[in-house]
Structures are given as structure tokens and as C-alpha cells.
Amino acid sequence: MLKKFLGEWNTKTIVAVAIGAALYGVLMVWGSIPVFTNTNLTSAMIVPVVVGALFGPLPAMVSLLVGNCLADLIGGWGFWFDWSVGNGVLGLFVGLLPMYGADIKNGIFKIKHAVIYVICCIVGNALAFGVVTPIMTSLFYSADLEITFLQSFAGGISNTAVLVIVGLPILFILSKRYASRTNLVEEPEELTEE
């Protein structure tokens, strides 16, 4: 179980986490729809889900954290650690997929997993943006707690929306596509029709 949580940190995982981080950075900068101050409906949120599904929660978290810093560096809106840390916590939760038996590499993603996934998304967002980020924001910037909650609440809602509306269909499609790939018996060309 612990091994599933930590992921296997071989070269493949390192590369995948790096690519995940790069994807996150790119999508954060070019694939987002701004809705509120400091809040984006961003397709980047999907990255930790996929990295988590393929490699486990810890890799998901690392790719999200690095990706976040990267996005801050290339996007040019400065470092905001309060949000980065919150995102890291969220990454851990949405990346939990292998822990409850979802295995999209082998085509296993059922309704049951979808339900747990949605719960994880909600709990993760509540914890990350209902607790972690507001506390850090008020510590760093002595911002008013009420406002901070409001801001991060908006962030949490929009993240959850993306994670569910965009994330679920992607998980279903990816698991189907990876499944048809693993079931094949060598020479796929033999399947010709005509």
C-alpha cells in the first residue's frame, strides 16, 4: 500500500512527472479561463489526475507542485506559495486513484471508482482550499480570513468543476484507450478486414 502511495521512483516516473509538470505549466498559462481573482477554470488540473492514475499520488503531487512553480515562472504572475502548497495537497488527493483500485493503464475505471474519485476531489479541494491555503494566505499577507476563504472557496469550486466535468470523461476515455492497447496480441495487422 505504501509503495502504491509513494510510486516507483525510477527514471520513467521521473520523466513522466517532469512531462506532467510541463503540461501543467503549459495548460495553466494557455489553457485557462479566468473566473475570479486568483482563480482560473484551468484544464491544467487534469494533469495530476492522469499522473496519479498512471504513477500514484506522490508523483501526482510532485508534478503539480513543480508544475505550479513552473507556471508561475513562465506565466509571470509571481510566486504565491499559499496557492502552491494548497495545490500540492489537492494533487495528493486527486492522484489517489491507484489506492482504490482504479488502474487506467489496464483499463480499470468503473462507476465505483468514479464515485470515489469525485469524493476525493471534493474532500481534497475542501482541505486544500478550505483550510491550507486560507491559513497560509492570512499568515503570509495578513489578509482578512473571510475574504481569503471566499477567494479560495471560488478556487476550490472551479477546480472541482474541472476535475469532475473534464476529468471524469477523460478518465473513462483514457482507460478505454489504454485497455484496447494492452489486450492486443502482438501483430495487430493480422486483424485486416476486406
Binding site: R177, P188, L191
Partner: peptide, 13 residues
Amino acid sequence: GLYSMRKWPVDSI
């Protein structure tokens, strides 16, 4: 030339 394969999964070809 794909008509007979139309219901196949994309990643199996």
C-alpha cells in the same frame, strides 16, 4: 477501407 472495422477500438489497430 475501415467500414467493417468501425466498431473496433482505435488503439487495437
